[in-house]
Design a protein around this nucleic acid. Structure first.
Lengths: 154, 154
DNA sequence: ATAATAATAGTCAATATTAGTCAAAGATTG
DNA sequence: CAATCTTTGACTAATATTGACTATTATTAT
């Protein structure tokens, strides 16, 4: 629990700031310098400790003036439904199963009609111009991405 | 929101003026001088931030009395907005351009915040678990599929 | 009129400045 | 000891900045 390793210290440092601001913007190299680690360790900390499951949204930009921004997500209380749906999706997903999931989301009040229609477009077999095997893989991935975004609102 | 590089500052400056006038006419070298950058950086800003996907139309003239004019595109109905956006998408689409499109959809009232959030999930770089080339192709396909669906709902 | 010159903007590629990925090596834990 | 987590760094990718060169239009000189 304490902070035996540097990643934990970096995590704690960032979370202390986030306790007072609901968003921070860092320069990766600065934080790395502060803790005397290689810059990519900051990515490691973010990928392991600031995920959406942990309640954080991370955005970044490269190039001059680049940054990494960490934001506290405003989590909704449908997390468990979403967890269940996500774990039910494997590596691939048929159009039919996708439609079933959309229906479940709608019936549980997680999305309205218009939102359902958008997601149905994503699940549609014509949305991917590749062979069926790859389509099923892509469909699974994209739908999971959507479900994860339904965890919070901006 | 981001604004630690000069291009962002120039963008913001121009958009502040455009918030009150629906068109502006600048002398490239003047703006460059104002921000102390080389003139061609103004082209960079325009090409990356004032495209049709962003909802702007740009015209210019060289020679004495030359100018660059930036105009807010005044698209009449939703169908026209969708046509313009779709025509700007080729076979591939970067995350950045995808985000720009979502923003334009929102600003034109075609989608609300929650819907924007869903489409952002589709456009997110983590939504496709394949190499970047294929991701860009898939992203273009799926987003076009969504845009076409937006035509027939309401 | 025509040609030369000045006054603009456009293009493109080199360089600079960031962040991201990935896998190997090392450390910790059970 | 095996599994997992952390640390490191070489390589990659995205974005921004710069400047040399080009293209277009207007003005001036002949």
């Amino acid at each position: 629990m304490a902070g035996k390793n540097i990643s934990d210290l970096i995590e704690r440092y960032l979370k202390e700031i986030l306790a007072e601001n609901d968003q921070i913007e860092i320069r990766r190299s600065e934080i790395a310098g502060l803790f005397d680690v290689v810059p990519s360790q900051i990515n490691y900390v973010i990928n392991t400790r600031f995920t959406i499951q942990n309640g954080y949204i991370v955005e970044s930009k490269r190039g001059g003036g680049g940054y990494i921004r960490i934001e506290k997500a405003n989590l909704l209380d449908d997390g468990e439904v979403l967890d269940a749906l996500i774990s039910g999706i494997g590596n691939r997903l048929s159009q039919r199963d996708g439609q079933t999931i959309v229906k479940t989301l709608y019936e549980n009040g997680l999305i309205d009609r218009r939102e359902a229609n958008i997601i149905l477009a994503v699940v549609d077999k014509n949305a991917y111009d590749v062979d069926n095997d790859l389509t099923e893989v892509m469909r699974a991935n994209v739908l999971v991405s959507i479900l994860n975004h339904l965890r919070y609102e901006k």
